[in-house]
Design a protein around this nucleic acid. Structure first.
Lengths: 151, 151
DNA sequence: GTATAAAGTTAAGTCTTCTTAACTAAAAAG
DNA sequence: CTTTTTAGTTAAGAAGACTTAACTTTATAC
């Protein structure tokens, strides 16, 4: 009981710290590269999906199909996305990242990684190994869960 | 060497998973409550600062002072912020969250917390305790580091 | 095979955010 | 005590992200 209480509190405090940080970092990064939050979010989604159509984007971003289409348009013009016809359904489009687009997203993740790394650097060897193990556990569990949700 | 390699990779993978998730959650939450990303970001900043002036906001959000002033304006009208005169400097304003505003931010953090909690729930007791300890270590280290950066 | 539904696009218009410019009021500097 | 700097606001206008409406093209249903 007390144990699960304590765990909950640890999770909550960690989220408290990272919520602020992640928001600030993302906002700064997006501003620095000259894209809007919406555009960046779209690129991020394509990065994780590897490939997706306009309707999928509009659904996940909770915007209308025209809005998604227009955002994609600009990102294609900016050289971040490629838009190809789906060979199995000629109505549909397959949107994918260009290498330039992939690099951008990877850079943004890398910047967040560096924050975490800078925190870990101040730790003792024992603490570092504990943190490493725990994050491996969490990453695996998160990925398992993601699969289930995706159905 | 190999050890630090492995740690780096664990950090990176964790960031990979959470970057996407945190972006998606935040974007959804913000949309659901009917505020813009910028407004939400501003509220978040005030939440962590407890209290701050317009110039501080404009600096941290990397927007001009008029932009900050206008955003604050709308959030005051929406009942999320309070704007009072600084007793020590009558030019300056002290912006603080109303209880409604604080509740909103806390709710957003809580939603993110619940994601993490749902992941942890699938773990064994031993794994949970490892995760709890590691997150306590990380939270402390992050807070220490924050203090240094704030000077 | 015709009718309907689905995937995207284009166009026109609205709303928001942000910028610059011009201004007020208070504090600090000289 | 005058000058300059600092904090913030107001106003006008530019840029972007969305929306709805109307349309094209391809797939699915009957």
């Amino acid at each position: 009981m007390t144990d699960s209480r304590q765990l909950s509190q640890s999770l909550r405090q960690w989220m408290d710290v990272t919520s602020h940080r992640s928001m600030q970092d993302q906002s700064r990064f997006v501003k620095a590269i000259g894209f809007s939050m919406a555009q960046f979010f779209l690129l991020m989604h394509v990065y994780y999906k590897k490939q997706c159509g306009i309707s999928n984007l509009s659904e996940h971003m909770e915007i209308t199909a025209p809005a998604a289409s227009q955002l994609v348009d600009k990102l294609v013009q900016a050289g971040m996305l490629e838009r190809a016809e789906d060979p199995h359904d000629r109505r549909a489009k397959q949107v994918t990242l260009t290498s330039k687009g992939r690099q951008l997203i990877e850079k943004s993740i890398h910047e967040r990684f560096r924050w975490l790394e800078s925190i870990v650097q101040g730790l003792s060897a024992e603490e570092r190994s504990k943190v490493g193990e725990a994050l491996r556990i969490l990453t695996n569990a998160a990925e398992e869960r993601e699969k289930k949700v995706d159905k």
